[in-house]
């Protein structure tokens, strides 16, 4: 294909590269980059409302960051977020790996694969806020879950799911698990199908059991995808908001044990405390930046 047959034409055409980029770049700069810069800028100013009086904006350097760590809430909320993420992610990755292995195993010949894949992916598309509201009503003191549990004689009086620290956390984690394990299964399965089948055949000939094949061949070869899934899930976990916000009506109760980082940010945004909100955003930005860098590095390695 005559690559540089008419150099001048190519240059004339290539001008269109810039033109086609204009909408993306313009919108990105206005709605993402400028807000990012002003968010960082805000983090260096004291700027909040106290009753009817507006304090600031006054430049205070890093005082907001010092304050946010001195108050200590951020550590508590980071802990909550991580606990709920781990509670959901561990079963998610285990179930997804097992399902992925089953779906991609030709010797198992599972029937109805499309049906099962369709079903397990379904919760991912459900509006998280409506899903959380649904769970709130189902697990209410007089809700159907308590009614069912009492009917089958598992408990004698309603269990107050919403007023125990661990039941709320487990509910949030469980909803996250339900919403994401189908997605992860499909990703991992695609990765497993990409593995050279001659490796499996060779292992079978050598007398390896399915369990051995899974741990010795599938898992090591899946490492890049596993890292990708884990880090992107962690980034998603740090953004956890809709489910706990709706489930606990924004309070993060009991005793703020299910308050996540973004719920904390949301509180600052509502009370118009832009200094603290900015500082919190910058901290989240740095954490996700580092995590993204890891994803970027591992996927770049994967390509070579």
């Amino acid at each position: 294909m005559g690559k540089k047959s008419s150099n001048q034409n190519v240059v004339r055409y290539n001008r269109w590269g810039y033109i086609f980029l204009i909408p993306f770049i313009a919108v990105y700069v206005v709605f993402q980059l400028v807000p990012l810069v002003t968010t960082i800028y805000n983090s260096f100013f004291e700027n909040y409302r106290s009753g009817l009086t507006q304090v600031g904006p006054n430049f205070v350097g890093l005082a907001n960051f010092v304050k946010i760590f001195q108050q200590g809430d951020i550590l508590k909320y980071t802990g909550n977020t991580m606990i709920m993420w781990i509670l959901g992610f561990v079963p998610q990755i285990i179930v997804s790996l097992v399902l992925g292995a089953w779906f991609s195993d030709p010797s198992l010949r599972l029937k109805g694969q499309r049906f099962f894949k369709t079903v397990i992916y379904l919760p991912n598309l459900i509006m998280a806020s409506a899903f959380a509201m649904l769970f709130f009503t189902l697990f209410a003191d007089s809700g159907p879950i308590n009614s069912i549990l009492m009917n089958i004689g598992l408990i004698s009086k309603p269990y107050t799911f919403m007023s125990h620290i661990w039941s709320v956390r487990v509910l949030v984690a469980f909803m996250n698990f339900l919403m994401w394990f189908g997605n992860t299964t499909i990703l991992l399965m695609a990765g497993m199908l990409g593995i050279d089948t001659s490796l499996f055949e060779a292992a079978q000939v050598d007398g390896a059991t399915p369990t051995q094949i899974f741990f010795r061949i599938t898992l090591p070869l899946l490492r890049p995808i596993l890292i990708y899934v884990m880090i992107t899930s962690l980034i998603g976990g740090l953004q956890m908001f809709d489910v706990p916000q709706i489930l606990t009506n924004g309070s993060g109760d009991p005793v703020r044990s299910s308050m996540t980082l973004i719920m904390y940010l949301n509180k600052h945004l509502y009370s118009k405390n832009y200094g603290m909100g900015g500082a919190l955003s910058v901290i989240l930005f740095i954490i996700t930046g580092i995590l993204s860098l890891i994803v970027f590095k591992t996927t770049a390695q994967n390509k070579d």
Partner: peptide
């Protein structure tokens, strides 16, 4: 574009609201 792919909207929402 690849590098900014992972930045969540939540971290820029404060500036976005002001804008």
């Amino acid at each position: 574009i690849l590098a900014v792919m992972m930045i969540p909207t939540q971290v820029t929402v404060l500036g976005f609201l002001q804008l």
